[in-house]
Design a protein around this nucleic acid. Structure first.
Lengths: 153, 153
DNA sequence: ATACTACTTAAAGTATACTTTAAGTCAACA
DNA sequence: TGTTGACTTAAAGTATACTTTAAGTAGTAT
């Protein structure tokens, strides 16, 4: 099965211009062209695009993804380099998830805080609660938010 | 306890210029000034900065955070609006975590893939495996990566 | 009083990742 | 064969979030 740039863009829910931009930046050297110069995406190309999407979500810039694509172009010589890249991306994403979970905790505390406030019709009551007067599940995150940790650099 | 912009910047591990930029964008109306015009951050301001950081991590732009800060300025009238904001941010972050977990799965598959390749000295063997020849824990993500889902819009 | 460092502002500059525009070509259908 | 819609490129434009620069001021230590 073959797809034009517009068709592939629809499948990926991104503008076709983004795919053309990626191509221009050297991210899609694998995409072949018709006689007339039109990009013909294959199912295999879709897999590549999924990997590119994954690396992007992991926090890599276009240039860094380009570096990876170039590694692939070098063939089996770059295998351990590529393994290292994915290992480091895996660790980065694990850290990002942990960070996001902290963010989520603070948001959950804030939801509770504003639920109380809306019920009370004022922020005053909730704001004046001491750390041990708030629900146990929020005490840690609240303390964390209140405590300045000075680093010595 | 009072902190200058440079001290607070160190505490937050961001450049002082970023704090000045946030101030210029209306994110820090609560920060008071000395007689001479120098910003004096308090422990309470640190809490606000933590909330701003949290909203930023949740995906809000500077302008959107400004909107929230403006809500706070309106007092108790904006309580339900603020609750709605935090609820929607909570949902957004939950989705982001789910998405990140998908990304992590693909990265773990890729780590396995390249570990095999490095062991074999070539990608050829791993690449030629069929879906039921790869470890069970990677079959779903691999299938997901291979399967184009066409939406009808 | 004099340095010195960190602070102040406005304004210009940078980086990243697209997005849009303009001028033109390809491919399918009537 | 002509029209139409989607494709092509290079180049300019946009959005966001800072970052840097320049000229000057505040506050502290000697």
């Amino acid at each position: 099965m073959l797809y034009t740039v517009g068709e592939m863009a629809k499948i990926l829910h991104i503008p076709a211009s983004t795919l053309r931009y990626y191509d221009k930046e050297g991210l899609l050297p694998f995409v072949e062209r018709s006689k007339g110069g039109i990009r013909m995406f294959t199912d295999k190309d879709y897999e590549w695009l999924k990997v590119i999407e994954c690396l992007k979500k992991s926090g890599l810039s276009i240039k860094e993804i380009r570096t990876f694509i170039d590694m692939v172009g070098k063939g089996d010589d770059s295998l351990s380099e590529r393994l290292e890249l994915f290992r480091s991306r895996k660790n980065a994403v694990q850290k990002q998830i942990q960070d996001m979970e902290q963010t989520l905790e603070l948001l959950e505390f804030k939801c509770w805080y504003y639920e109380q406030s809306v019920n009370d019709g004022t922020e005053a009551n909730v704001r004046s609660l001491t750390i041990d007067e708030i629900p146990v599940q929020y005490q840690n995150i609240k303390k964390n938010m209140d405590t300045i940790i000075k680093s010595n650099d």
